[in-house]
């Protein structure tokens, strides 16, 4: 901790770090479901690599959150012993994998956002956040590149790949708006310039997404109703199943270690 933080700030910061960590963890869990099921061996490994990158970032974030919470909690406690309502991940990342195209679109929308967010967070006055952001950004840049190229390949591919990925975009779009709707913690932290204003990232995000969709000859959905709730623990029906599977061992055999 570089500065003694006001208590409200500390709470907001720990909530925010958990939000980042939970989002990465749930997405990592989703992507790793592909392990052994990828469309080709090379992409199976690519997906697992990305999942494990995200898991690595998650660990740094949970360790920092545990430090901020000061409740004698470990990173494992935070990942395995919190319930659905306590998870703050974006609704976007808990959506089931669907087909390969759906997974790609979900990843692309998220990594495009992450790239913009981490680029700003890297400059945060909070040195811990800045350091995590800087390290994560290198990985995120590759995830972005990988997912954007697949959007283009599938969109500008065969008739079938195009119609399927367009359908995925239309379906998942409703979960993309939440990234830019700041929750209370984000508002507070942005007001004291510890994090960027997420709403302000939307324009750049739309531009980047549009450029890739144009190249992929795909259509960007317009003015759709946006789902939200993940940041405050109100999730879609899918999260409970992920947690049930992910937390089973720690719940059934508490305190087990590798």
């Amino acid at each position: 901790m570089n500065i003694a933080l006001h208590n409200d700030t500390q709470v907001a910061l720990s909530n925010y770090v958990l939000q980042l960590a939970d989002t990465n963890l749930i997405l990592a869990q989703r992507i790793c479901e592909w392990c052994g099921h990828g469309p080709v061996l090379e992409q199976d490994i690519a997906l697992s690599n990305i999942g494990l990158d995200l898991l690595g970032q998650t660990r740094s974030l949970y360790q920092y959150a545990a430090e901020l919470l000061d409740e004698d909690k470990s990173e494992d406690d935070l990942a395995y012993l919190r319930s659905e309502r306590q998870f703050k991940n974006l609704l976007l990342v808990e959506q089931p994998n669907g087909d390969f195209g759906y997974t790609i679109v979900r990843q692309f929308l998220y990594e495009t956002f992450q790239q913009l967010l981490l680029t700003e967070l890297k400059k945060s006055s909070n040195t811990q956040l800045a350091a995590i952001a800087e390290k994560s950004l290198i990985e995120t840049n590759y995830h972005y590149k990988w997912s954007a190229e697949w959007v283009i390949r599938l969109g500008d591919g065969t008739e079938e790949s195009k119609s399927r990925i367009q359908k995925s975009i239309n379906e998942i779009w409703t979960y993309s708006g939440e990234m830019f709707i700041p929750c209370a913690a984000e508002q507070l932290l942005a007001s004291i310039s510890i994090i960027p204003d997420v709403a302000a990232l939307k324009e750049a995000w739309m531009r980047k997404v549009k450029t890739v969709l144009d190249e992929a000859t795909l259509t960007m959905p317009e003015n759709m109703y946006m789902q939200q709730g993940g940041k405050t623990g109100v999730h879609t029906e899918h999260l409970g199943y992920i947690l049930a599977e992910m937390q089973y061992l720690q719940r059934q055999y508490p305190r087990q270690q590798w």
Binding site: V40, L41, E42, Q43, I45, A46, N49, W146, E149, R153
Partner: peptide
């Protein structure tokens, strides 16, 4: 060796398969 649709994908697949 590996399978890929084109050179760019081959290099990226190689990155994921052989340099991890």
């Amino acid at each position: 060796s590996l399978h890929a649709a084109d050179a760019q994908m081959a290099i990226e697949n190689a990155r994921d398969v052989y340099t991890r």
